[in-house]
Amino acid sequence: PAGESFSHASALVNEVSRGTCANQAAVDKLAEEVVQPVIDGGYVDNSGIGCAVRAGAVEVVAYLDNDASNTQANLAPLFQGASQVKVKGVWEFEDSPIFEQSAEWMMAECARFPKLKICAGAKFLSSISVGTLDVTTTESSLWGTRRGTPVTLHLVSVASTVTIGYLENLRDYDVLIQETIETMAAPENADLVQNTVMPWFLQPADKDAEGESTGSPPNTPSDCGSADSPPSAASGTTPWAATGWLAGCYS
């Protein structure tokens, strides 16, 4: 709860790394505490959305890094029937959806999102689309969610030919970031960026004046994991921002 699984596991791993050697006693202690190494969110939740919803978020802003086709491969596993969607990049593993809508529906909706005009001379950036999905949670023993909670997903989908690593030239990343910045700042995209995207991040001034919360979600366990109670999220709080590829250890 509240990150203790990660902090406790991290402390145990640090004890071993500070020692002169990794002896059997140290390894046995890690085994007794059931410490699991996690290198990324690849087989959990590439988008970061599922983790945010599990923690109680009902409004999420997600930055999604997609391949050049802008297919929502990282988002699909959170929806029904993802393993049946034959799309490159959607991993073939047992479905573990957190939303009741289908992956096919989600992809069709995302395909209709408006797109920004890409900056001139872009080498890697192929598309930036933005839009909102109104979805509903489903019952999941894996995620610990219950059925019927409305969730709003604000998505910024950035598609490019740059990969997540592999043999990628590291200099490609700063070029992609520059192209993304220039596209977002381009005058021809001002209306879409200022009137659609920016309100997802900025709390309206009138709400500030009314004294409503503008802080981050509380660092306390959410009750969304209970099958008998829905996720708790106070109205007026700032939307959660999510991105994928988690790293660390937990126990």
Rank of each mutant, 00 (worst) to 15 (best):
A241C: 08
C224G: 09
T20W: 00
D228R: 09
T183V: 05
V61Q: 10
V85P: 03
D228S: 15
A186Q: 09
S222I: 03
E109W: 04
A55G: 07
Q36N: 07
L202P: 01
W105Y: 14
V197D: 02
I177A: 14
I177D: 11
S96W: 12
A233Q: 13
S69L: 12
G211S: 03
S102R: 06
D28Q: 10
A227S: 14
Q72V: 15
D67L: 03
Q101G: 07
S140K: 04
A209F: 03
V27C: 11
G144K: 11
P1H: 09
F99T: 07
W143I: 06
K86W: 08
G248E: 07
V44K: 13
A82G: 06
N189A: 05
D191K: 11
S157T: 13
G50R: 09
E104Y: 07
S235L: 14
F79Y: 09
S222A: 05
C119Y: 13
A242F: 15
A9F: 15
E139V: 06
G225D: 05
S17K: 01
S222W: 07
L142H: 09
A241E: 11
V85S: 09
E33Q: 15
A11I: 00
A120T: 12
T243P: 00
Q101A: 07
G121L: 06
L155N: 14
V151H: 13
P114H: 02
M184H: 06
